[in-house]
Design a protein around this nucleic acid. Structure first.
Lengths: 167, 167
DNA sequence: CTCCAACTTGAAGTCGACTTCAAGTCAAGC
DNA sequence: GCTTGACTTGAAGTCGACTTCAAGTTGGAG
């Protein structure tokens, strides 16, 4: 299974892009419909991708990894120029936003880890004392949008749901 | 909207559990169908939850946060005794497995972060040199199933996917 | 005893992210 | 110039994780 010879093939077919990105061609078409990547067409109407597409895809996958939707990834990618190849600084700006996102994500995992050791695994039946157990109620009591320790759906519930559970 | 009076109500209605867990009642019923939580029934067939349900829910949410499906969470929870309240040691064993899972997750995010700074944001147009850019190609060349740097489908590829990117 | 919010059920709907399918077109090696 | 595999399209299907709906039942305050 030889990959196309290195050289001046600047444009990739969807099959080649699939092979290199690890995504199914159907996914690539889907990404295109979503506006995440773009292709030129041959006279015969087949897609041809510039190599920049690989980078965009890499970015999208990275975004998904840190918990973003394709729509969110698109918002970020839309900051890049479409026609010409983005400059380093441009990519940088986009990547920058993920830095913090990733840091956030890491921080949250660290917190979760701490809670897990400190609480879920503690076998504490003194519920009033258990942070994991109580955190959600605290947060919820703190105002609308505040959710369970482990939740992060921003769309749901402005209710004063889940009060303090000291009991 | 008063919540039930504090006292010796050991069993929670689905509404109360919803309020305390932050999950919709529909989600709780769904969790029950999935076997993640269990309820006893009143003579009138209404669900009553023991307080342990809250802990199980906390666990499930935690599991989701680190990227596990409900099915996977169930596997872990199934290690707990159903009838009686799990002991600290039992919870500990379950939580333990998440420790490593979380660590893994964190490590991967750290890697991602490093890559992002080092590459996506680097603006390097010397593509032969760009790891993120090339990782996919390497992987693809490495054989079928080899996936992109940012993927983690475990079903796919024990390949030497995405090698060290010194080049 | 009455009333109404809170509960019950099964079935169907939703959403994101794709995949699968059918039916047809393109392109490149012989 | 023919064949064959890679490509094209739109529509429909899938999967996980829920939500919504309709129609009926329960339970606790007054």
């Amino acid at each position: 299974m030889t990959v196309n010879p290195p050289g001046r093939h600047d444009l990739l077919t969807i099959g080649q892009l699939s092979e290199r990105s690890g995504l199914a061609t159907s996914a690539l078409r889907y990404y295109e419909r979503m506006g995440l990547i773009h292709a030129t067409r041959t006279t015969g109407n087949q897609r041809r991708y510039a190599r920049g597409a690989l980078r965009r895809i890499a970015f999208v996958r990275a975004a998904q990894r840190v918990g973003l939707s394709l729509d969110e990834a698109k918002v970020a990618l839309d900051r890049l120029p479409e026609r010409r190849a983005p400059s380093g600084a441009e990519w940088d700006g986009v990547a920058q936003s993920w830095q913090s996102r990733i840091d956030e994500q890491i921080a949250e995992l660290e917190r979760l880890k701490a809670k897990l050791t400190g609480c879920i695994g503690c076998g504490c039946l003194s519920l009033t004392r258990c942070s994991l157990y109580n955190a959600g109620d605290r947060a919820a009591a703190g105002g609308p949008g505040a959710r369970y320790l482990l939740t992060r759906d921003p769309a749901t519930g402005p209710e004063p749901a889940a009060r303090e559970l000291t009991e």
